[in-house]
Design a binder for these strands. Structure first.
Lengths: 254, 254
DNA sequence: CGGAGATATTGATCGAGGTCAAAAAACTTC
DNA sequence: GAAGTTTTTTGACCTCGATCAATATCTCCG
């Protein structure tokens, strides 16, 4: 995390008070008065406990949700009964973007631990972004970012080995924790092996085996739900897939 | 497709002339004058030939693209050289949505056959949607739909067998052709087995084998790139994954 | 604290699908 | 239409990770 980012994150923290709206405020920067207008429509939810549903698939869509603290999983159900995890949502991340299109949630969301949530009435958010071009732009970016992320995930699921998937998953968590000011090398997994496996298209046993293998190889220290990344470079080296855009950023001459 | 939608689709066809902007005009229906304003910013591209690039990963993003006729694939490159197909785009479908967030394309796009494209300057589209709330709404829906679609794809790649993936792929094509007024049971695959395999996370040999198996089972007739679906119900039965939302729509009592 | 239920680890086995290889069919180009 | 290239099909084999099973560890609660 660069010095600059720390500063702007702090600024936003003040501007957005204790509510994690930085996804919407950052990084184009709304004017302070626009941030206030955004805040005016935010509802606060009572905290969710582990296992509580935030919403269920099929329910009408009225609000976007932003995770303040804690963690949430989103999932659908396969018709053979068990659940398919489609995403994990950490502080500052937005839920419900898939539901805009047809006015009902396409997946369910459930708290993985004690979790605080902000609620944004979508109609009012739309009205607001009609009047605040930079907010509209930010909304487009937010949705687009989700699409990019999903494309990366599809590439990962489409062609990678189990090792690559687990490494990539850990790196993704690391990145996201870092971005929110938590430790990038030392964090808790609030989701079970089962849930990680479901998300990565692997059996829970495979996830467990890879965790122990990474530990044996001195890449990680895993103690149940607590992960400590020891050699992040070896972890990065496992992830072979690299988008052209990433390559281009790393070496613009090619 | 409900009666109401059919009607509005026809209206749009007229309103949008020969240019496939229905993705943006549909289904909330812009007022005719707004459709005109939208048309005013559309650029027409010269036709692409098979193999021509529409854009490349890393290039600056200025336009959204809509396929008028033909077909396009989007792909990234893995660092072991070969390409990873992330999507196929048929007439009426929009490309470039993943590039809004950081102003550069995250994947490359290449024509699979002779293809006509419309070009929408994104900045002007943003200006326009600030002024036309229903267009803004439509843009949000468009982006959201992409996210839903990606989530479905992730679920497919995460847990399904090869059989399920290929069946699902064919059904998806069938749906999309149907929606655009082409035959739902009789169509050309403009992409190679290689490209299908890459997209579905399978080896090209596996795709080929499944095509012949489906043909032996009298579910399809496949002749090189021409597919004819004979028993679409057996194909549907293979796709076990069903989102809660779908289940809810099918049987709202549960 | 102790017992019950959930969650994680580890081992053994097996099969779906990947990989390699070769032939066949289709498309290209002169 | 012949020669060369690309794409597809089909076969044989093998590997990675799923599945089944047993044990260990954690967590929750009385």
């Amino acid at each position: 995390m660069t010095e600059r980012n720390v500063i702007s994150l702090d600024k936003i923290k003040v501007a957005c008070r204790d509510c994690s709206l930085s996804a919407l405020c950052l990084p184009m920067g709304l004017r302070p008065e626009d941030v206030d207008r955004l805040h005016a429509i935010v509802k606060r939810n009572r905290p969710l406990q582990r296992g509580d549903n935030l919403f269920r698939a099929g329910e009408p869509f009225r609000h976007l949700f932003v995770v303040k603290t804690g963690a949430v999983k989103t999932f659908t159900q396969t018709n053979d009964g068990d659940e398919q995890v489609v995403g994990f949502h950490l502080p500052g991340e937005v839920l419900g973007l898939d539901a805009i299109q047809d006015g009902q949630h396409g997946c369910s969301a459930r708290a993985l631990e004690t979790t605080a949530i902000c609620e944004l009435p979508f109609e009012r958010l739309e009205d607001l972004s009609s009047n605040i071009p930079s907010l509209q732009h930010q909304m487009f970016r937010l949705l687009s970012k989700e699409i990019s992320h999903d494309a990366e995930m599809m590439a990962l699921l489409g062609r990678s080995t189990a090792e690559e998937r687990v490494a990539s998953f850990l790196l993704s968590l690391s990145e996201r924790f870092k971005r929110r000011g938590f430790s990038a090398t030392d964090f808790f997994l609030s989701m079970s092996r089962q849930e990680i496996g479901s998300y990565l298209g692997l059996a829970l046993e495979t996830v467990s085996r890879l965790f122990t293998r990474f530990q044996d190889d001195k890449i990680l220290k895993v103690e149940r739900k607590h992960v400590q990344i020891i050699d992040i470079d070896r972890l990065r080296a496992m992830v072979t897939h690299q988008t052209d855009a990433e390559r281009h950023r790393a070496n613009p001459s090619t």
